[in-house]
Amino acid sequence: MDTIDKKLLNLMQNEIPIDKRPFKILSEKLLITENEVLKRVNKLKSEGIIRRIGGIFNSRKIGYTSTLCAAKVPVNKINEVAACINEYCEVTHNYLREDEYNMWFTVITHSQESLNDIIKEIKEKTALSEIMSLPSIKLFKVKVALNFQGDDKND
């Protein structure tokens, strides 16, 4: 990864233009050709640094509801419980974290009712006595960008 790749990644995390030639617009910002941008992006994708390029939607505005859940999972049950939880397509993220509450996962569904049902079902299937649901009340910031250059004004 060179400096141009890093700048490109910073730009692309923040926004790929909605325009007939999106990569051409990015190339102009980087003072390189459109072809070179495409070549670099393809390389970053095949190397696995870029996971996906596509639409990122606001689940609430689409009419979906979500929460963050946390569970205390005994160490010898982690794989089994993770497999059970991850099976739900409504669970989009699941992380093992260093805490008593060691499993943290998000649930997104079309209604509050189905959200409650899923959490209840997971509790039953995993026999975990307690799963906390910590829905967000207020959003102060979401900026998924990993900053490759602290001083980059475009970031």
């Binding site: 990644l9 692309m12 995390q13 923040n14 926004e15 790929i16 233009p17 909605i18 999106p22 190397e47 696995g48 640094i49 870029i50 996971r51 996906r52 390029i53 596509g54 639409g55 990122i56 939607f57 606001n58 505005k61 689409i62 979401v142 998924v144 990993l146 490759f148």
Partner: peptide, 19 residues
């Protein structure tokens, strides 16, 4: 969609660790 906020953006999602 972008103006109404349904679509936050078209963008790249990275593998944090690989990056």
């Amino acid at each position: 969609y972008n103006e109404t906020g349904i679509l936050k953006r078209i963008g790249a999602i990275l593998y944090h660790r690989k990056a």
